[in-house]
Amino acid sequence: MRRSASLLALFVATALASFSPRALSDELPEYRLKAAFLYNFALFTDWPSDVGPTLNLCIYGHDPFGPEIDGLEGKAVGDRHIAVHRSTTLESLRVCQVVFVAASPAGGLPRVIASLRDAAVLTVADSPGAVDQGAALNMSVVNGRITFEANLEAARSAKLNLSSKLLRLATKVRQ
């Protein structure tokens, strides 16, 4: 009798477990969320046809993502797949399609922008005023949420088209 009661409890609990969704918190580490945004930026960009099957995503200099960004390794962006790199020289950025430049006191962004002039590279930053310095996309934290701005002129000079959906969701679009 006792055995059948506990079997019943087991059955009921397992059924409950199957149907109750695990609670997901809406709060998460900043750079995990920014890594997801980076992936979406690559997804909502029209890449030139001469870009090969690999989309090189380079983190230039200081790496604020840590291991989080490696989760993008091999992820599909259309017919292409992401390869994650940490780059330490400006010259090495020429092989990248997406370059992320973290906010740093050294102010590496202007040098990155200058070295990638006219190259088909999507430059993404997360420092105030980055869009005005020539980055194509810039992420910020506003009220605990990630927002982003776009620089259409920078994207055009890199021969990249940002999707209208991405531009619609941007807080500011510099023409």
Partner: peptide, 21 residues
């Protein structure tokens, strides 16, 4: 991406730092 815009970051958030190189 619309859903990502709604998510909040933890107050004490910071990616794990990896030494240069």
């Amino acid at each position: 991406i619309e859903r990502l815009l709604e998510l909040k970051i933890t107050s004490a958030s910071a990616g794990q730092l990896v030494p240069r190189g």
